[in-house]
Amino acid sequence: MSQLAIFVVLLALGYGFGRMAESRHYRSIVEREQRHARISTLTLRTLESEPATVRRTQLVSGNVVISVDYFKRVAAGLRGFFGGNVQAYESLVDRARREAVLRLKESCPGAAHILNLRVETSSIYKGRGNGIGSVEVLAYGTAVYFDVE
């Protein structure tokens, strides 16, 4: 009985705080993405026509680890039972990747482009074996600074 009560409380907490954190995070992501839209990210290695002379280049990276909330974990577990798109984790993965790219951009505010952007994931939690889920993203690329904007 108490097990069920604890479960329901955790679920409600997970849902409430999870939703709150998620919508706040999305608002911040959208706002910052627009602010940094000037820095274009490309997966290309070179720019065919360069409008100005390159002042310098620099390897830049951004990373983030975002935790799963209890509600998402249970919902994903249920979805795993039936199969299909795991809706609960889709937004988590999306947030993590956009956040990592944003942090990469924020580390080089004066850059004109990020070339050869790569996005990698790691898995810190996997070895811990305590079932804590998290999304861990590392984004990296080459920032190019021009003499004239």
Binding site: L4, I6, F7, V74, G77, L78, G131
Partner: peptide, 9 residues
């Protein structure tokens, strides 16, 4: 998965 908590009761 945390599901056992749902199904145990």
């Amino acid at each position: 998965s945390g599901l056992d908590a749902v199904f145990a009761p």
